Amino acid sequence: MELHNIEKLIEKYFDATTTVAEEETLRTYFSGDEIAPHLEQHAPLFNYFKKAKEERFTKQVPLKPRKNYLKWVSVAAIAVFMVGLYFYQPTSVPETLADEYTPEEIESAKEALALLAMNFNKGTEQLNHLEEFEKTTNKFLTKNN
């Protein structure tokens, strides 16, 4: 095999433009004993591919999931549920607002709601003016058509 052809094939290989047959030629060349000294640096690469191709996975692959995992998850879920039930302390629901809030808090809330209602009514008054404007505009537009 000509050394010049091997150098061209190596350049093509690193440019990713070689064919399968050309790569096989490179593997054959680098698996031999007569490798040019300046090309010896590439020999481990091609020898690795040859060895990797022969490797096989020999361990058994489990096809079913392990049942123990599901058992332990269910046991843990039950344990968490039982701890939650043990520490659960129901609170009594207040029957009226006076049971839950002080009279000052209730008066403060009433004042806030009255202020909100007053401002809300101001906004609705503006909508009445808008409705009047719309009626007048519609009358004017229908007279012109």
Rank of each mutant, 00 (worst) to 15 (best):
N5S: 10
I6E: 09
E7C: 05
E7K: 07
L9F: 03
I10R: 06
Y13K: 03
D15S: 10
A16C: 14
T17D: 06
E22M: 05
E22W: 02
E24Y: 04
L26A: 10
R27S: 04
T28A: 07
T28E: 14
G32I: 01
D33P: 04
E34N: 10
I35H: 11
A36W: 13
A36Q: 08
E40F: 06
L45M: 07
Y48G: 02
Y48Q: 07
F49M: 03
F49I: 00
A52W: 01
E54V: 03
E55P: 03
R56K: 00
F57T: 07
T58A: 05
K59D: 15
K59T: 12
Q60P: 06
K64V: 14
P65D: 11
K67Y: 02
N68Q: 12
Y69E: 11
Y69P: 05
W72A: 10
S74F: 05
V75C: 13
A76Y: 10
A76H: 05
V80Q: 13
V83M: 12
Y88S: 15
Q89L: 03
Q89M: 12
P90S: 15
P94F: 06
T96D: 04
A98D: 04
D99W: 13
E100N: 08
Y101E: 02
P103E: 09
E105T: 11
E107V: 14
K110Y: 11
K110W: 10
E111A: 15
A112F: 14
L113A: 05
L115T: 04
L115I: 08
L116W: 07
M118A: 11
F120E: 10
F120M: 09
N121Y: 02
K122T: 11
T124G: 06
E125L: 14
L127Y: 06
F133E: 09
E134I: 00
K135N: 01
T136A: 09
T136C: 01
